[in-house]
Write a protein that binds this DNA or RNA. Structure first.
Length: 569
RNA sequence: CGGGAUGUAGCUCAGCCUGGUAGAGCACUACGUUCGGGACGUAGGUGUCGCAGGUUCAAAUCCUGUCAUCCCGACCA
């Protein structure tokens, strides 16, 4: 591609409405343009990156034995009514009517359509297992689209759906997809983790999200430094209390703490760190009463974990002030486990404390030197808190750090939810009708592009990983219009590189060097060959690596083989 | 949907408070000089001042409504 014939529009200034770096750079580099909120045009350069990602996804899906098909974006409402999601899905589902007043949706996902395909096409267990996939535009009417293409309303997604005769086959298909996803993201050069996720309301036994690690990510995840363990922050378990705590060394005492309601105030006033204090939270119980949850002062309650505990109302609800007063005789800020009559559940970490500080269950009073077993009964314990950096990994290897991630893929075992609701059946070996199990596996293709930029950029612009760069090599000429030698050399290299099957972009514009270099860095083409009279005279052309910043030389008569060597690894 | 903010040239923004016939930089076009790190000069084009009402002799500016966009919260690839 010759840049002189390619209307790129790069901008020095950052558009005001772009918040995250990938959005800013995609706009500045001219990869995308906004058409409406969360809806973007991919300009040719941007589309090339999308196609590169697609190609890798397609190759690995094919390698895993999945079959590509293409389903319609517009789907009849009847299918959604059949699955029950016409009512369930809510306003994120874009609904519309045709001229005959028939109802349709613009597909946010394709479980209904694929299940319809399956019930028509699959007749025998002998056709199982099978995995269908497509790479297709989805539309989700997000409440708040943001971050450009990262959370758009219309986005390109690879979605796959597998059908299985039994659990073992489903598990096998799921594992194959996990392998395929791992290969894809590795090939794309992304730093990612497979994260244990909640199976949520969909049910099923296994679910993992693929998260690209980036500070701008919307999800908090806990990752181990000892192995590949990673989980959503809310889902990572904390270590159980091992039964040993330091011996009590202080007497139980009550101290006046007027006006100090927060852990921060108490620890400042008494000169103890927050991890020597406990906080007591009163939540509504499932039996109409209340339950006290006790955590270490520096820890955070995890609502998902708490509401799973017997006796605690789900969804979790903090008790209101009158109920707290009735149950404890005091107001929030001075609560403690001492003398409480309601059920008390203590987080493992709080249970491990000795000589701790807690509220005195009286306004403006705290207790110090409190010890389980001496001043209080041995506690009823549970995992109540979010993991924090430094906690041991649940995998048993390494310690956890809290990172942020961008969810680019999600795989899960669906079970029979859709096949049952939509009566997709096949005949089993005995000639009886059976309902196959399903798995589903998504990748946000366009989101991957944004995530890759989040992870690969510097102050000058994008730094594409080779496999998903719009172009692999950039030929950058200096003095283009005045030097015939430069033109001749560059034209020849352009042809040769193309013939060698290398994706080459040729900046043959009659622009000043500064402009060309700046654009090269903004666009982030990984390998740049600079062609100037100086280099030609010396027989050696300049090679620049966008990522390493390395500035080397290549023999002018061996550019193609030298580059091929560079690209090989 | 709740909270916050913004709409003026393709982009970044000034002008609005205090109404008087619309500006800068970047980008774009032509010519000249320049040419290995976002050049300079000369000339040039560019706007229903988001939209609709209202107030006024006069509205980008004041008032009302409306639409759009962005940011913060609950959802998702």
């Amino acid at each position: 591609m010759r840049l002189s014939r390619y209307p790129i529009n790069t901008a020095k200034e950052t558009p005001a409405d772009a918040e995250v770096i990938s959005h800013q750079l995609m706009l500045r580099a001219g990869l995308i343009r906004r058409l409406a909120a969360g809806i973007y045009t991919f300009l040719p350069m941007g589309l090339r990156a999308v196609r590169k990602v697609e190609a890798i996804v397609r190759q690995e899906m094919d390698r895993a034995g999945a079959l590509e098909l293409l389903m319609p974006a517009v789907q009849p409402a009847e299918l959604w009514k059949e699955s029950g999601r016409w009512e369930q899905y809510g306003p994120e589902l874009l609904r519309l009517k045709d001229r005959h007043d028939r109802e349709f949706v613009i597909g946010p996902t394709h479980e209904e359509v694929i299940t319809d395909v399956a019930r028509r096409e699959l007749k025998s267990y002998r056709q199982l297992p099978v995995n269908f996939y497509q790479i297709q535009m989805k539309f989700r009417d997000e409440i708040r689209p943001r971050f450009g293409i990262m959370r758009g309303r219309e986005f390109l997604m690879k979605d796959a759906y597998s059908f299985h005769a039994d659990e073992a086959s489903l598990a096998e298909g799921y594992a194959a997809m996990k392998t395929a996803y791992t290969r894809m993201f590795e090939r794309m050069g992304l730093n990612f983790r497979a994260v244990r996720a909640d199976t949520g309301s969909i049910g099923g036994s296994a679910s993992e999200e693929f998260q690209v690690l980036a500070d701008s990510g919307e999800d908090a995840i806990a990752v181990s430094d000892g192995d590949d363990y990673a989980a959503n922050l809310e889902h990572a378990p904390t270590p159980m209390f091992n039964g040993s705590r330091a011996a009590a060394s202080q007497p139980l005492a009550r101290v006046a703490t007027p006006g100090t309601r927060s852990i921060a105030d108490v620890s400042a006033l008494l000169g103890v760190t927050a991890d020597r204090c406990v906080k007591t939270l009163i939540v509504d119980g499932s039996d109409g009463g209340v339950v006290a949850l006790v955590l270490r002062g520096d820890h955070e309650l995890n609502a998902v974990k708490a509401q799973k505990i017997a006796g605690v109302m789900s969804p979790l609800r903090m008790s209101n002030a009158p109920r707290v007063l009735a149950a404890t005789g005091t107001e929030p800020g001075f609560l403690g486990p001492l003398g409480l009559t309601c059920p008390v559940i203590v987080d493992y970490a709080a249970a491990a404390l000795s000589d701790f500080v807690c509220g005195g269950n009286e306004k403006d009073v705290h207790s110090t030197g409190v010890n389980w077993g001496r001043d209080l009964p041995e506690p009823t314990m549970a995992d109540l808190r979010n993991v924090v950096a430094g906690d041991p990994s649940p995998s048993g290897k390494g310690i956890l750090a809290i990172r942020r991630g961008i969810e680019v893929g999600h795989i899960f075992q669906l079970g029979r939810k859709y096949s049952e609701a939509m009566k997709a059946t096949v005949l089993d070996p005995a000639g009886k009708s059976m309902t196959p199990l399903m798995g589903c596996y998504g990748i946000g293709v366009t989101r991957v592009v944004a995530a890759a930029i989040e992870q690969n950029h510097d102050e000058k612009g994008i730094i594409w990983p080779d496999p998903i760069a719009p172009f692999t090599v950039l030929l950058l000429t200096l003095n283009h219009d005045r030097s015939e030698a430069v033109r001749t050399m560059a034209d020849r290299l352009y042809v040769e590189l193309g013939q060698a099957g290398i994706d080459v972009l040729y900046d043959d514009r009659d622009a000043r060097p500064g402009v060309k270099f700046a654009d090269a860095e903004l666009l982030g083409i990984p390998h740049v060959i600079v062609i100037g009279d100086r280099g030609i005279a010396a027989g050696r052309l300049e090679y620049r690596n966008r990522r390493s910043g390395e500035n080397g030389e290549i023999a002018a008569d061996a550019v193609v083989p030298e580059l091929q060597k560079l690209l090989a690894h």
